[in-house]
Computed example of a mutant assay.
Amino acid sequence: MHEINYDKFSVLMSVYINETANNFRECMDSIFSQTVRPNEIVLVYDGPIKEEVDDLVTKYSKEYPDVITIVRNEKNKGLGLALADGVPVCKYDIIARMDTDDISRDDRFEIQLEYLKNHPEIDIVGSHILEFDKNKEDITAARKVPIEHDDIVKYQKKRSAFNHVAVMMKKEAVLKAGNYKDALLMEDDLLWADMIMSGARCANIDDYLVYVRVGDGMIERRGGLAYYKKYKSGRKKILETGFITRREYVETLAVQLIVALIPTPFRAMIFKLCLRQKAN
């Protein structure tokens, strides 16, 4: 680990019943292999979890008793409300997000902390991500995001300008914006809109700092009327913030409806050609 003095920070994650022991282990090992380790990991139980995952939590808690803080919810609330429970518990003003099945590059936290140290006006900083199925060495796609604040704000009106699992943000700015809220599948986009509306300054680092596990069913899950209705509900909540206009709301709904209803092979083609890039 590096000896440079950075601000102390927390990692915030939510774990739920579908998480597997192997994925969770890879995630946690990537955290504890960082060149700059977190001072705290806040792990929110979003309802019951698998016994083997719970056993791993116990194992890591014994190894790092002063690092891991557990917040337990007896019932599943959904990611947004689970994370909303975790934010106030975080001891430190800098919060790094991760999902429990993803893997951070070993210098991710150091790079983001260095960026925040050199750009104290920034409230949230993310990065590009690399997507994989089973092995992080076998990259299937990349998701690049805009870098500068004005470009991020413009992009966010139509699509997510951050990769949620790759952000590092300031707790004060999150709470000022009202914290995470219930917006199934769009809790991150709603938070970004709220933060921007409350004056947060944004940036992304032009690098791939997180490996994201997408799995075989990702494209299929983005289809169907059920998914579209969740998307529409989330976009409506963003509309109500005043961040987007009604025209922008209607335009994105029209595009999403088409994408949701076309056959899965065509949806996969759209993702490959329009929504994802090849890794450099």
Results as ranks from 00 to 15, higher is better:
2 H>G: 04
3 E>N: 13
3 E>Y: 08
7 D>R: 15
10 S>M: 06
12 L>G: 00
15 V>I: 14
15 V>E: 01
17 I>C: 09
17 I>S: 10
18 N>Y: 11
20 T>G: 08
22 N>Y: 10
22 N>M: 09
22 N>G: 06
23 N>T: 06
25 R>D: 03
28 M>Y: 02
30 S>G: 09
33 S>H: 11
34 Q>G: 05
37 R>D: 11
40 E>D: 07
46 D>K: 07
48 P>G: 04
49 I>G: 04
51 E>G: 09
51 E>D: 14
54 D>K: 12
55 D>H: 09
55 D>K: 13
56 L>S: 07
56 L>M: 10
57 V>T: 02
60 Y>P: 04
61 S>T: 14
63 E>L: 08
63 E>W: 03
64 Y>Q: 09
65 P>T: 09
68 I>M: 04
68 I>K: 07
72 R>T: 15
79 L>S: 10
81 L>N: 13
82 A>R: 07
82 A>V: 10
82 A>D: 05
83 L>Q: 03
89 V>S: 01
90 C>L: 06
91 K>G: 10
94 I>M: 05
94 I>F: 04
95 I>E: 03
96 A>K: 08
100 T>I: 08
100 T>F: 00
101 D>A: 00
102 D>M: 00
105 R>K: 09
106 D>F: 13
107 D>I: 13
116 L>E: 02
117 K>W: 03
122 I>P: 00
123 D>H: 13
123 D>V: 10
125 V>S: 00
127 S>R: 04
132 F>R: 09
133 D>L: 12
134 K>C: 11
136 K>S: 10
137 E>F: 13
139 I>V: 09
144 K>P: 01
147 I>E: 03
150 D>H: 05
153 V>P: 00
155 Y>F: 06
155 Y>G: 00
156 Q>L: 05
159 R>G: 00
160 S>E: 02
160 S>L: 02
160 S>F: 01
161 A>G: 08
168 M>L: 08
170 K>P: 09
170 K>E: 05
172 E>T: 14
174 V>Y: 03
175 L>A: 11
175 L>W: 10
176 K>R: 13
177 A>E: 00
194 D>K: 12
196 I>Q: 00
197 M>T: 12
199 G>T: 03
208 Y>A: 01
208 Y>K: 03
213 R>I: 01
217 G>Q: 15
222 R>N: 06
225 L>G: 06
226 A>T: 12
229 K>P: 04
234 G>L: 12
240 E>Q: 11
241 T>N: 00
242 G>M: 02
246 R>E: 08
247 R>S: 12
247 R>Y: 02
249 Y>F: 15
252 T>Q: 14
253 L>C: 11
254 A>C: 15
257 L>W: 04
259 V>C: 07
261 L>E: 09
263 P>S: 12
264 T>Q: 05
267 R>K: 15
269 M>R: 15
269 M>W: 11
270 I>K: 12
272 K>C: 10
272 K>F: 10
274 C>Y: 15
275 L>R: 15
278 K>H: 07
280 N>P: 13
